[in-house]
Design a protein around this nucleic acid. Structure first.
Lengths: 249, 249
DNA sequence: ACCTGAACACCGTTCAAGT
DNA sequence: ACCTGAACACCGTTCAAGT
């Protein structure tokens, strides 16, 4: 269609290379340590070429953020297909969120910074819209499981709550837990004694019990569900996580 | 004691002026828009003097963060003295956290960024230690209310939960809710329909019900408690918030 | 003892010159 | 049509010179 010298596949491969390189810089030196100069030094292209792919540094950050959310959506879809009751499926969503943040700690922090106005406003509209579409997809997964719960009778909605509010409460709780226990944040006060996987399960159960989502904690042992997740649909991710942990020992 | 030309009071007043100015720059242009040059331009001192107070830009950010947490601790102490049952006191803590983040949106975001290693590592040890002490104080308020609940029998601890874990679950839930609904973050997907005060109350009740903290939502109307908080111990803060809202209308 | 601001290194972004 | 890298403006930090 458009008269290009380099074809789309080459261009896309180069963009992936640039994003991968930027991510490696951030992993070593943090988001604030990322500079275009450092990316260019690690790559066989010039500054001008980087600006041919991204309108500015912030646009690059948004692109990285979108890649991360896209991968997370894939895990959410897998969680929503988990063979169990609706409460177990919701537990699977939270577990996949946690797992993904552990496998990609750098990107998890990036999502927060990519949402600040200073980053958002400078990004291209195309990438901003893409971000909205991706988040909408995540939300769709959660709402679908809430509907599963409502139609099976496992979840009975309190009269003052909408499905969207239930979805948001679970999202906020998961986000808060993962963010506060994130490896890149200082461990102070309480947080020294807290273990992410254990607290994530505790908080999920507290919220699901509080929402009136059956079977309650007293009626079913959720650690059995976690075991099934680890050995089943998220076995590959668990293996990846364990191999990384053993490397740093 | 030490032979100073300028006395401690003058020095402290100047530091306050520098911090206040830095905050005004951040309020207008975001954390990433803060530069020492801009602060110096708004103040009758030179760059060298700024570096006499703060070892680097990040040290200044940590100082701002500490000021914010110090004010929050004052609200927490007031909430812990609220005349009500233990569940209402805990509700007051969450409400004060939300109120403080609404009155100081800039600083709330600052606390997140001040915890990243790139900021933390560059700050002076003195300010890092001060930060730990302040957070410990916040936690103390929450733990005290948990103890009130345990001794009154309103809270019965699940066998697998410690008081510190209960404190952390409520903190993570509140933090996640406030952060995701923060005015400085993009409103997308679900969040467009969410109202901070309403969801904060919903999430608090979901978590407190899930923790088994009496009286449960069905046994007592928590919006009555919120009304008492607004008209009582947080009346001044509510007036401040309302006057600001009417200004922007 | 403290303050000042010129000087330096570094970084994001642009664009004239090249292929 | 695309790439390159010199050039520019801006920013954090230092430190010699001043009071």
């Amino acid at each position: 269609m458009s008269p290009r010298i380099i074809d789309d596949a080459t261009r896309e491969a180069r963009e992936t290379e640039l994003l991968q390189t930027a991510l490696s810089v951030i992993a070593k030196e943090g988001v604030s340590g990322l500079t275009i100069d450092k990316v260019v030094a690690l790559v066989p292209y010039s500054k001008g070429t980087v600006y041919n792919h991204f309108s500015c540094k912030e646009d690059l950050l948004t692109a990285l953020c979108n890649n991360h959310v896209r991968q997370l959506a894939e895990l959410f879809h897998r969680a929503a297909r988990f063979d169990g009751n609706s409460r177990e499926q919701m537990l699977a969503i939270g577990f996949s969120y946690m797992l993904h943040s552990q496998l990609n700690p750098t990107e998890f922090m990036l999502v927060i910074s990519a949402k600040t106005p200073s980053v958002r406003e400078k990004s291209t509209q195309k990438r901003q819209e893409e971000h909205l579409a991706l988040e909408h997809d995540l939300l769709g997964c959660i709402l679908q499981i809430i509907n599963n719960g409502l139609s099976s009778g496992e979840l009975e909605l309190a009269p003052h709550l909408t499905p969207a509010q239930v979805a948001f409460s679970l999202w906020a709780m998961s986000f808060g837990t993962i963010a506060l226990l994130h490896e890149s944040l200082d461990r102070c006060s309480v947080r020294t004694e807290m273990e992410l996987e254990r607290e994530m399960l505790n908080h999920s159960n507290i919220a699901l019990d509080g929402l009136g989502w059956r079977p309650f904690t007293g009626e079913h042992d959720s650690s059995e569900t976690i075991q099934r997740l680890k050995e089943g649909i998220f076995a590959a991710e668990m293996a990846e996580l364990n191999s990384r942990l053993s490397l740093t020992d």
